[in-house]
Design a protein around this nucleic acid. Structure first.
Lengths: 110, 110
DNA sequence: GCGCTCCTATCGGCTTTCGATATGAGAATG
DNA sequence: CATTCTCATATCGAAAGCCGATAGGAGCGC
């Protein structure tokens, strides 16, 4: 049994994807790279998590996707935040802040 | 369809239980109340989540449980942190801090 | 052509959380 | 006593989400 590696906290993935797209459209792997970058390598999103999540978010109306060409001339599916997605990003950011603050408070308790 | 209420982030429950027991032994419902208290009401742990989690943590060796009498003279199962559980609490606290800091950084990104 | 990298995709398994429900026993009321 | 309330533990099934493994197509260098 290999050492259990740090899994993503459930629920943070959606928020990270929305945030990754806040600065402009990206294709799937680009989103993955951006998340790794803005979290300073703490979160590494695997394909098996990424693509189902992208489809889920598109289904929910937070993202809209379209096919294009990547910077390496490959077929790639780009995603962009919808207006609703922007609102969702705000709500989830607030929610995260609430939760994080409660956790921090709890962990300091005596 | 009622509004979807704030679910616990997966993974935070174990940490909160360990932390709740750091100051002394408690029975199941007491742990639940303590968590609600130290998170200022942000996290409410339901029985359907609590008891499976307690059994899981005991199975893992972080907690040890024993039967006793509650402050209301009812049969109650008390839990206390094991030595291993103390180490686990430390590790999970560090892990949470790492994650929270990465998220905070990510959410500030431009 | 061959291998390498890039890019998207899916499937099965596992863990975890929740809602609903059940059971039992002490306390309070009449 | 009998009923009802609260405390306390427990379990089950449903739903969700992450991951490892795997697949396949297409451009690029050699």
């Amino acid at each position: 049994m290999p050492a259990k590696q740090a899994n993503l906290l459930q629920g943070t993935l959606d928020l990270l994807i929305l945030k990754a797209l806040a600065t402009g459209e990206l294709h799937g792997l680009g989103i993955s790279r951006r998340i790794e970058q803005i979290t300073r390598g703490t979160f590494v999103v695997k394909p098996g998590s990424l693509f189902p999540a992208l489809h889920r978010l598109e289904e929910a109306g937070w993202l809209s996707g379209f096919w294009g060409d990547s910077e390496n001339h490959r077929r790639a599916k780009y995603y962009r935040l919808t207006k609703a997605g922007g609102g969702q990003l705000e709500r989830e950011t607030e929610e995260w802040t609430r939760v994080a603050s409660a956790m921090t408070h709890a962990l300091k308790a005596t």
